[in-house]
Nucleic acid binder design. Structure first.
Lengths: 229, 229
DNA sequence: TGATTGTGTGTATTTTGGACACTAAGGCAA
DNA sequence: TTGCCTTAGTGTCCAAAATACACACAATCA
């Protein structure tokens, strides 16, 4: 804080790594760039931070403007400040990651923003800037976080079956889990509420639908309880 | 990335939360502000990010300029971007946290920077800006991180006794640990190298001195081994 | 030389994690 | 209507890890 204010400043942007889940795969929401540099290439949604908005709000605004998404889970990831990130000038970006339920949001994102599309994490196109690196860090963070915070619920519809929940964990962690052990653990956590309802229109025995009990979770966090999986 | 470059930009700074450990306590390195706002108050070392330096380098440079510290463990913490952080104008700060061995660095910091001083974490003065919040987040991060990454070694001299190591963990975690269980676990990790030497000039049985085996640690990280404590 | 102080060590118990396979329910098609 | 297909739902045993716990040893000092 020793210097005065006329110093040249890096540009400051936010970028969002938006994860979505559907039946088949863990996906990422990208937008196609319209202008140089990297015109035509896919990139993370993001943009400049305005003077009258917090970083969180800037991320939400850009996400909404570019993809139509609103009210999603959004958390700061890391700030990237390498010198050559942008070929035009010095740009520092505060990266965020978001989790959305693809079933509910798919149509919206597809219509609002003509140039937004979902890609399987395993088959990403070449990304603009250093966005591949940002995605790598986000994936790592998600894998780490999901192990000790019940965070992934954001990727599912409000009511979900235990099998859906298990599939989600498997896709994030990249390995298979044992059904019985998974159910034991996740139910023992005490953050799942049995809605009493079951699946409809499935060609097999209908599974129970649960929902995440946020109140119970918050109580347990206050009590200092851990949530390893 | 939709806008052009003449937009007004927030100022961008870095701030460092520097943890140090001595026999008595976990400490924080603060500097006294010379000018308004918050003149005379204690604050985190930090300053503006230049165009020709990465964020990491900016943090290291400011740390060195303001406190004389160099070559310390330094890692990005979080980026703070609330609107009213600085009463003069919009300032976004990328916060870092550092771990240093107070025994080795105490004298240096005290001489190089006339206005730097160490404070016990439990008896901090009122801090400038939102620095108290930044410290809170850093403390939390340190507590979380120390549990699954052997990070705290940075706080000790190169050669240390198991008791010193245990005290460090206890101070960071804020609770007492069982001596035998602690030693079992930490030795089982396989990242401690017995130097064969012992303490000097102590009024009791001299303890063995160990040092952190970074090579072994890196090998184990590659092999995907966990380090919970 | 014995008082003081911190070092160094092992076992028994409890808790947790992981492997493992069958029956139940519902829709569908022959 | 019956049998088939698909997914739901459930419990036990074993291994590994976490925890609780107490005493003899070495070095210095008075």
């Amino acid at each position: 804080m020793a210097h005065s204010y006329e110093y040249p400043r890096p540009a400051l942007t936010v970028d969002c790594v938006v994860f979505g889940l559907d039946d088949s795969d863990l996906k990422l929401l990208l937008i196609r760039r319209g202008r140089e540099p990297f015109a035509g290439q896919w990139a993370l949604p993001g943009g400049f931070v305005h003077l009258d908005e917090t970083l969180d709000n800037a991320a939400r605004r850009e996400l909404h403007e570019e993809t139509g998404l609103a009210k999603v889970f959004l958390e700061q990831l890391y700030t990237f400040g390498e010198l050559d990130r942008d070929p035009r000038e010095r740009v520092v970006t505060v990266a965020y990651y978001a989790l959305v339920n693809l079933g509910e949001h798919k149509a919206k994102a597809a219509t609002d923003a003509s140039e937004a599309a979902w890609f399987s994490l395993s088959k990403l196109p070449k990304l603009a800037f250093d966005h591949a690196e940002i995605v790598r860090v986000a994936k790592q963070r998600l894998q780490g976080k999901v192990r000790y915070v019940p965070i992934g619920f954001e990727l599912l519809p409000q009511k979900f079956t235990l099998t859906q929940l298990q599939r989600m964990y498997e896709k994030i962690l990249g390995r298979e889990l044992d059904k019985r052990n998974f159910r034991k653990k996740v139910l023992a956590m005490g953050v799942l509420h049995d809605t009493g309802t079951t699946q409809k229109d499935v060609a097999h025995r209908a599974a129970r639908l649960y929902q995440f009990d946020e109140a119970a979770y918050k109580r347990m966090v206050k009590a200092g309880i851990n949530f390893e999986l």
